[in-house]
C-alpha cells in the first residue's frame, strides 16, 4: 500500500483532469486507470457562470481523493492564497504546490516553493510539492514540513520521459523513507515503468493520458506499466553487464568434435 499523509492507497497513479476530449472520457479514464487521486485547479468564475459547479459535481461523483493544485502561481504569496481558496472549495488539506519560475520550461521556483511550503504546513496543509530533482531543495522541503516530494523528470507536458535518471536514483537513495512521486514529463507507459523500477512510489500524469488517442485505454496502459515497474523493483533486477553470460548451463554439454 502507498501511504500519503493520512491516506493509504492501492493505486500508484495520480491523474490530472485537464485536456480530456469530454467529461465522459475523463470519467472513463479515471475508472480504467484505477487512480484514487485526481488533481484539480481553481480559476476565475465568470459572472453567473455555472461551469465550475458542473465540473465539481463530476469530480465528486468519481469518488476519489481530490488533490487541488496551485498551477499558474509565480510567487509564494500567490500560491498560499490559492491553496487557502482551494481548501475552502474542496474541503481538503491536501495541496499540490506549484510555484512556477520559468515561463518556457515551467520549472519550479524552488525558493518561493520552499517558502510557500513552510507557510502552508504551518497552517495545517498536507503539501505535495512539485519540485526539481535537486537534493538540497528536497531537504529544505522536508524541513519545511512536507512528507511527500514530487520531482519532475522532464518539463510539464513534454512527454520526454526521464531526462536525468541518475538524479532520480540519487533522490531515491537520499530520501529512502519519503514517498517520491514523479510529477511531470512522462509520455509513455514505458517511461512510468522506468521510474517505478528506480524505486519511485508513484507517478502523476495528465497530458500523456488526456491527449492520447484513446485516453481511457492509455490510463489502463499506464496503470499496468506502473504495476509492472513496481513489481520489478521489489523483485530485484539484474545490473547491466558489458559481456555476455550464457543462460544455458555448459556443464554436461556434449562434445562433438
Amino acid at each position: 500500500m502507498l501511504k500519503l499523509y493520512d491516506s493509504e492507497l492501492s493505486s500508484r497513479l495520480l491523474l490530472g483532469t485537464a485536456r480530456y476530449p469530454s467529461p465522459a472520457v475523463l470519467a472513463e479514464a479515471v475508472r480504467r486507470s484505477g487512480t484514487e487521486i485526481v488533481t484539480v485547479s481553481l480559476r476565475r468564475e465568470t459572472s453567473g457562470g455555472k461551469s465550475g459547479g458542473v465540473f465539481f459535481e463530476l469530480i465528486r461523483q468519481l469518488g476519489v481523493h481530490i488533490l487541488p493544485n496551485t498551477a499558474g502561481c509565480h510567487s509564494a504569496s500567490e500560491a498560499v492564497l490559492t491553496a487557502k481558496m482551494a481548501r475552502e472549495v474542496f474541503g481538503t488539506n491536501w495541496i499540490k504546490l506549484e510555484v512556477i519560475g520559468h515561463h518556457d520550461s515551467l520549472q519550479p521556483d524552488v525558493f518561493e516553493l520552499v517558502e510557500a511550503a513552510r507557510i502552508l504546513t504551518g497552517e495545517g496543509f498536507s503539501v505535495f510539492p512539485y519540485t526539481t530533482d535537486d537534493l538540497i531543495v528536497g531537504e529544505r522541503l522536508l524541513a519545511a514540513g512536507c512528507r511527500v516530494l514530487m520531482p519532475w523528470c522532464a518539463p510539464i507536458g513534454s512527454a520526454a520521459g526521464p531526462r536525468n535518471p541518475s538524479a532520480l536514483v540519487a533522490m531515491r537513495a537520499a530520501f529512502p523513507d519519503i514517498p517520491l512521486i514523479v510529477d511531470a514529463g512522462l509520455g509513455r507507459p514505458s517511461h512510468a515503468a522506468v521510474v517505478m523500477e528506480l524505486g519511485y512510489d508513484a507517478v502523476l500524469l495528465n497530458t500523456a493520458v488526456a491527449s492520447a488517442g484513446d485516453p481511457p485505454a492509455m490510463g489502463e496502459a499506464f496503470a499496468k506499466a506502473i504495476d509492472a515497474g513496481r513489481l520489478a523493483y521489489l523483485a530485484g533486477m539484474l545490473e547491466p553487464r558489458d559481456m555476455a553470460v550464457p543462460s544455458t548451463p555448459v556443464i554436461g554439454k556434449a562434445v562433438f568434435s
Binding site: 485547479s41 476565475r44 493544485n69
Partner: peptide, 27 residues
C-alpha cells in the same frame, strides 16, 4: 481569503480587488 460564512460581514470599499474562483480541470 474570505470564508463563505464571513461574506455577509465583509464590507466593500472603493478600489477593493475581489477574486471569485471556482473549480476547474487541472494537472
Amino acid at each position: 481569503l474570505v470564508h463563505r460564512e464571513d461574506r455577509a460581514d465583509a464590507r466593500l470599499e472603493d478600489g477593493d480587488r475581489i477574486e471569485i474562483l471556482s473549480p476547474m480541470q487541472g494537472g
